[in-house]
Amino acid sequence: MDLLTVPQVMARLRLGRSAAYDLLRTRQLASITLGRARRIPAHALTEFVHARLDQEAA
């Protein structure tokens, strides 16, 4: 399983730091905490994008 850092997610989604952490805080994007580090499973990012695409299509 691939785990992404917040900066990697920011780059992939082309979001700023605040927007990325807002997605994590509101649980729109799943993450885990390892020690003090926040990691986002790659499949969670894929699911997030698919959910947003479904919302836009509706």
Rank of each mutant, 00 (worst) to 15 (best):
A37V: 09
S31K: 13
R14A: 02
E47V: 15
S31N: 14
A19G: 03
Y21W: 02
A57M: 06
A58S: 09
R36H: 08
R12M: 14
L45K: 15
L4D: 02
V49K: 03
T26M: 03
Y21L: 00
F48T: 10
T33Y: 10
M1L: 11
Q8M: 14
H43S: 15
Q55W: 04
I40C: 02
A20N: 04
V9I: 06
L24E: 09
V9A: 02
H50D: 11
E56Y: 09
F48I: 14
Q8C: 11
G16K: 05
A44T: 03
F48C: 10
D2K: 15
A19L: 03
A44K: 01
A44S: 14
A37E: 06
L53M: 02
L4S: 04
P7M: 03
A37I: 07
E56Q: 07
F48E: 11
H50I: 11
R14C: 05
A51E: 07
P7I: 02
L24W: 00
G35D: 11
A51L: 07
G16A: 06
R27Y: 03
D2Y: 13
D54I: 00
M10W: 10
V6S: 02
P7Q: 05
G35L: 11
G35W: 11
R39V: 12
L53D: 01
L24Q: 06
P7G: 01
R38E: 09
Q28Y: 04
R25T: 11
Y21K: 03
T46M: 11
D2C: 12
